[in-house]
Design a protein around this nucleic acid. Structure first.
Length: 271
DNA sequence: ATGCGGACCTGTTAGC
DNA sequence: TGCTAACAGGTCCGCA
């Protein structure tokens, strides 16, 4: 389940292997992703090359000679670099083959991911044009959150997971950041002080940055391996630890649901 | 505009 | 042991 650090790690991991090499072939074994893979994806890509790959939110944007490939990894998507001889495994849905002899292979068991081809202004694409700021940008601050939260009754956890507010904060990191900031995930977003939002924004940045740096140690996995950076479950304070003792006060952690997602917090440490 | 539930999908885990 | 059911979660969509 790629969150922002995994997507960033994927971007950095595949970039050196696929940049500036002509695309020779595109194989779509299964076009049934979240949205159907465009029929003409191969025609669009073949013959051109990628000049740059960037991440925006959890999307990967491939700058191509003639346009842009936008890819999302969904819940279970991953990309890895393989040789053309490497037999495709189950759920290996898309291959992009390059003149330099490598294949970029997309793997996605649940098929929640998606591939889009766009020409023209890529950031105007409907999937990208209403996204909030990047959490690691200078634009993302406690003051920004505080301003956007004015008058909102929505639970703060759902608020920070809303991509229109800020991108890239998935369920795991939302749980962890709220614990670190000592904020009850159920609290109404509009009833949190600026000082507390300052702390929350800082913790979101700290946790995401840490995870990205840790992801860097698994970059080699993008060649030949399964391309899955993986989590460091032993470093999570609340996610997946319902009923276990709080790492700060030993009180059993409470587990509930917010927006149909697992929400874990400490009733004593978070309010 | 905001907020919420439903839908998508399948590997893994829990329960009978 | 074998089968079925629940669960996991990012994101878009549609409705209130």
């Amino acid at each position: 389940m790629p969150e922002l650090p995994e997507v960033e790690t994927t971007c950095r991991g595949i970039t050196p292997h696929v940049l500036c090499s002509p695309i020779l072939s595109v194989i779509v074994r299964d076009s049934r992703l979240r949205w159907p893979v465009p029929d003409d994806l191969s025609a669009s890509l073949t013959g051109g090359e990628f000049a740059r790959i960037e991440r925006r939110a959890k999307y990967l944007i491939f700058h191509h000679t003639r346009g842009f490939l936008i890819a999302h990894l969904g819940m279970t998507g991953s990309m890895r670099i393989v040789s053309p001889q490497e037999p495709a495994r189950p759920h290996d849905h898309i291959d992009i083959g390059f003149a330099n002899g490598v294949v970029l292979r997309y793997h996605d068991p649940r098929r929640f991911g998606s591939f889009h081809w766009v020409e023209g202004a890529v950031l105007s694409h409907p999937l990208l044009n209403s996204l909030g700021p990047e959490p690691l940008s200078s634009e993302f601050t406690g003051r920004y959150l505080h301003d956007r939260a004015r008058g909102r009754s929505q639970a703060v956890k759902l608020f920070i997971m809303d991509a229109k507010i800020v991108v890239g904060v998935g369920n795991i990191y939302a749980n962890e950041a709220l614990f670190a900031a000592g904020i009850d995930p159920r609290r109404a977003a509009g009833r949190i002080s600026l000082a507390r939002y300052d702390h929350l924004a800082q913790h979101i940045k700290r946790i995401l940055t840490y995870a990205i740096n840790r992801g860097g140690t698994t970059l080699r996995d993008f060649v030949g391996g399964d391309g899955k950076p993986g989590y460091f479950a032993q470093e999570l304070h609340v996610y997946g630890r319902g009923e276990k003792p709080c790492t700060a006060c030993d009180e059993p952690l409470r587990e509930t649901r917010l927006g149909q997602r697992a929400t874990v917090f400490c009733k004593r440490c978070q309010n």
